[in-house]
Design a protein around this nucleic acid. Sequence first.
DNA 1: TCATTAAATTGTT
DNA 2: AACAATTTAATGA
Length: 235
Amino acid sequence: MTQDASLFQRRRPLTPAELAVIPWFKLLSLEERERAAADLKVTDANPGDTLCRTGRPVTYWFGVIDGLLKMSTDNSEGQTMTFTGIPPGGWFGEGTALKREAYRYNIQALRKSVVAGLHVDTFHWLLDHSISFNRFVMNQLNERLGQFIAAREIDRMTNPNIRVARSLAALFNPVLYPGLGTVLRITQQELAYLVGLSRQRVNQALTTLCEHQSIAVEYGGLRVIDLQALRAGIF
DNA sequence: TCATTAAATTGTT
DNA sequence: AACAATTTAATGA
């Protein structure tokens, strides 16, 4: 297990290819890009690694370059509630970074991932200097709010097929994760951790979704054919 | 480049 | 939870 502080001791600068995955980077002016690029650091996270934990102070605004993360909280009974998975291109923690509060959730790597971090000071500097960046963050906050509400609904649903479908639909959110195309690399085991079901049941659900022509299951991942159907969830 | 082997992932019980 | 079948990744000639 690695905590956020030690995690970023192994940091290194980003490669141009990694910068290309960051959706807000191309919105910046040349000057702003330089400043952001100078501060951006990436690190590798192994499965199970904790990127941030509830109650810890915010030092970075995080984004996924490659891999897959899980956002969850522990309720009063000690049970873990998963809000969402975060695929490449996803950035999180802006709400707490804005207010310089402590994290309200845990972020864990579901598999070996590459995670970028922007220091909160630079995050605020960008907010002060770039209208486009402000718009991006605002959009992000708004969309995330919708996700949290949806996550509650998903958690109350009993039908596993619909749970899997809606969770997948959330993962393919084009606003939050713009870089993501129609294919997502995620194993059925990872999806099981995300949705909170057994791998067998996820496998069964995926087969059903396949029969409904909503997705296509591939080795080590899947392809979305009908995102609307996943959202609507008539299975 | 190809064949062989190991590891990862899937499908099923 | 366990198993076999399938796919990918790694290795070395």
